[in-house]
């Protein structure tokens, strides 16, 4: 059985516009890959297509999560199959407490008739919140409502830690974080790195990759991966921008 998150020739449209135009990428278990790319190149689109957002229509290609055809699953099935997306813009859910939300997500993973052990659940949640430097008061507050940008991002990582996916996509989790928060969040992600888990980290900033050191860096441009390399590629991108790559792409 294959042990990777494998995206092959993915084409996707939104409102009739093609955004992903034959995207191919494989993240073997145990590795961290980073995607960089200009605004509007399709990074979040890729993430949401994998999560199953209904605004996006896949017109061609496949996504395999190990041996599972991800695109054939319902949104919630994908999550339960081990896929996780930390959103660039997490949604607010008024009136639903963070704790109840996480508990429902955990409950959904249990066989019928089994109940989440509340005591163990809270203990684990508090421990992970401590790791992320999140105040206990966030358990009782409505999901993301009134959270600052940085608090929302931490909350996404808390969810990831609680749900322990096999493949996680982090969409600009570093944006909006100050340097201390960045360190804390990166430590949380690094603690989850394991031979049993793969990460795809979407970012604009090389500094994140100082903390979460990637195995491979990809450049996404106009719906396709146009260049891949080691972590040095990120430095080069930060220095020179994206123009040199797009120029390279022009037919000689």
């Amino acid at each position: 059985m294959s042990q990777s998150l494998k995206i092959d020739n993915l084409h996707a449209t939104v409102d009739g516009n093609e955004i992903l135009k034959g995207l191919t990428l494989e993240i073997p278990k145990g590795q961290v890959h980073a995607i960089m790319g200009p605004n509007g190149s399709g990074k979040s689109t890729l993430a949401k297509v994998m999560a199953g957002h209904e605004d996006y229509v896949v017109t061609d290609g496949t996504v395999l999560l190990d041996d599972i055809n991800l695109l054939e699953l319902e949104i919630d099935e994908r999550s339960r199959a081990g896929f996780f997306l930390a959103f660039q813009y997490p949604h607010e859910i008024p009136g639903v407490s963070n704790a109840n939300f996480l508990r429902a997500a955990r409950q959904a993973r249990l066989p019928k008739g089994e109940e989440v052990d509340a005591v163990a659940f809270y203990k684990e949640m508090y421990l992970k919140m401590d790791e992320l430097g999140m105040d206990r008061k966030f358990t009782g507050r409505s999901v993301n409502e009134g959270f600052s940008g940085g608090e929302k991002k931490r909350n996404e990582i808390l969810q990831m830690m609680m749900l322990e996916p096999t493949y996680a996509v982090l969409d600009e989790t570093d944006s909006g974080l100050d340097i201390d928060a960045l360190r804390i969040v990166a430590a949380g992600v690094n603690a989850m790195r394991s031979p049993e888990r793969g990460f795809l980290v979407i970012t604009h900033y090389q500094r994140l990759l100082d903390y979460i050191v990637p195995d491979v860096v990809h450049v996404l441009h106009d719906g396709r991966i146009v260049k891949s390399g080691g972590k040095e590629l990120a430095l080069e991108l930060e220095e020179k921008g994206y123009d040199w790559i797009t120029e390279e792409l022009l037919p000689a």
Partner: peptide
């Protein structure tokens, strides 16, 4: 909102 919850594995 429904999408966000489903993306965490909660059935529709």
């Amino acid at each position: 909102e429904i999408f966000y919850l489903r993306a965490r594995g909660i059935p529709a």
